[in-house]
């Protein structure tokens, strides 16, 4: 067994520092909730949180005051509405005002590709004429294609200190395998200085023949933790479905500051680990 396979508590304690730029990625699918909760329990501070779709996990982290800055491209509760803790921070400065750096999906995904490629910036077309570009001249600049003269937007590469992802499997050597909606996880991981992965299960070895699956090889991974159910209430293809009902419930829980804190106390800060969190949710909600 690889010595990179360690408990999640240790992975977070050893590899995420206050003030780090951290990307917890996963596009609706495989969102690393277990790792996010552990970061909250360890009270990491002044983090720059990067993520295309902040989702409930960043709503929780922002509401608990872990973030100094949010870098994102779509900050809502998919199919439900707003992220109320994010909005409370932006609109009312509660628990404090976070700095916002806002992009488009195409931009962030491309910025990870640039980071993974070791390039300083990326180019794209979509910003022409938009107020996002006008509002953010420090990270959307205009260049001329040296071959055609076309005017294109240039935006800086993303190179997070740590990228955290959840995957279906790792093997005993520490290779990581994910499938289904793969989002930007490979790019975000390859762009980062450190990679922390939680997985549904550790298998002896992957099945032969599936050579096109998305793999992050063991020598690039910093730490792996086995956390079954670690992306709930999002989903892991082949393991469990998305808990759409919880996404709807979150709308109510997160609207009220006191109710939010009570929920976080009960289900996150005062539990030992993610397994206890899942058990408690099940007991209290049937």
């Amino acid at each position: 067994m690889s010595d990179k396979i360690i408990p999640l508590e240790k992975a977070i304690a050893d590899h995420i520092q206050d003030r780090d730029e951290v990307a917890l990625e996963g596009f609706t699918h495989l969102i690393p909730f277990a790792a996010g909760h552990e970061i909250i329990r360890q009270q990491k501070k002044d983090l720059t949180l990067i993520r295309m779709t902040p989702d409930l996990i960043y709503d929780q982290m922002i509401g608990m005051g872990m973030a100094k800055k949010l870098v994102f491209s779509w900050g809502g509760n998919p199919g439900v509405g707003s992220l109320h803790r994010l909005r409370d921070s932006i609109e009312n400065g509660f628990p404090h005002t976070i700095e916002i750096e806002e992009h488009s999906h195409a931009d962030i995904s491309s910025a990870y590709v640039a980071g993974a490629s070791g390039l300083p910036f990326t180019v794209l077309r979509g910003y022409t004429g938009t107020d996002l570009a006008k509002q953010n001249p420090e990270y959307v600049k205009w260049i001329e294609c040296p071959f055609t003269g076309e005017k294109l937007a240039a935006t800086p590469a993303f190179t997070p200190n740590v990228t955290v992802i959840h995957a279906q499997q790792a093997d005993r050597k520490g290779n990581v395998k994910l499938w289904g909606i793969i989002g930007v996880q490979k790019e975000a991981a390859m762009a980062a200085k450190k990679i922390i992965v939680t997985v549904e299960e550790i298998v002896d070895s992957f099945e032969d023949g599936d050579v096109n699956a998305t793999i992050i090889p063991h020598w690039l991974v910093t730490a792996i933790s086995e956390v079954p159910g670690g992306s709930k209430p999002s989903y892991a293809m082949g393991y469990y479905k998305r808990n759409n009902e919880f996404y709807k419930q979150w709308d109510e829980i997160s609207q009220d500051r006191d109710r939010f804190h009570e929920w976080m106390d009960t289900y996150v800060t005062k539990v030992e680990n993610f397994n206890e969190h899942l058990q408690k949710l099940e007991v209290n909600n049937g």
């Binding site: 779509w74 809502g76 932006i90 488009s104 999906h105 195409a106 910003y127």
Partner: peptide, 15 residues
């Protein structure tokens, strides 16, 4: 009012 933001829309609208 803070809305969710751009997502993929700018590139859809332009490309």
């Amino acid at each position: 009012v803070r809305l969710p933001g751009a997502g993929g829309a700018p590139e859809i609208a332009s490309n």
